[in-house]
């Protein structure tokens, strides 16, 4: 695997190159997209991006955990966790290189 890290700056630059708005506005638009996704999830509404994947919120119940250092039992409170399920298209795209036979999208 390569092992570079892509950040907001890279994504903002890609939007800038692709759409031709200013760099500043491109960065703002990226931020707005992330905020819209966040808001939807905070409201409990899953986000489904075709050919990419879906994000949904799952409610976890309370359970008893243990402090691994002291062995002490501590309750883990009920909480919400975010689950990302990649689409078949994304999974195929990631495995295409690795497979000997071609993968169709």
């Amino acid at each position: 695997m390569a092992g570079q890290t892509v950040t907001r700056a890279h994504l903002g630059e890609a939007v800038y190159q692709e759409v031709g708005l200013s760099r500043n506005e491109s960065a703002d638009l990226l931020e707005t997209v992330l905020n819209l996704v966040t808001d939807s999830l905070v409201q409990g509404d899953p986000v489904k991006i075709s050919s990419f994947g879906s994000f949904s919120v799952r409610q976890k119940g309370q359970r008893i955990g243990r402090n691994p250092k002291t062995g002490e039992e501590v309750p883990i409170l009920p909480r919400k966790v975010l689950v990302f399920r990649p689409s078949q298209v994304l999974k195929s795209r990631i495995n295409r290189r690795a497979l000997s036979e071609p993968v169709s999208e």
């Binding site: 695997m1 390569a2 892509v6 950040t7």
Partner: peptide
Amino acid sequence: ARGDRVEL
């Protein structure tokens, strides 16, 4: 697909 990470 390149094997990179994306950190936001």
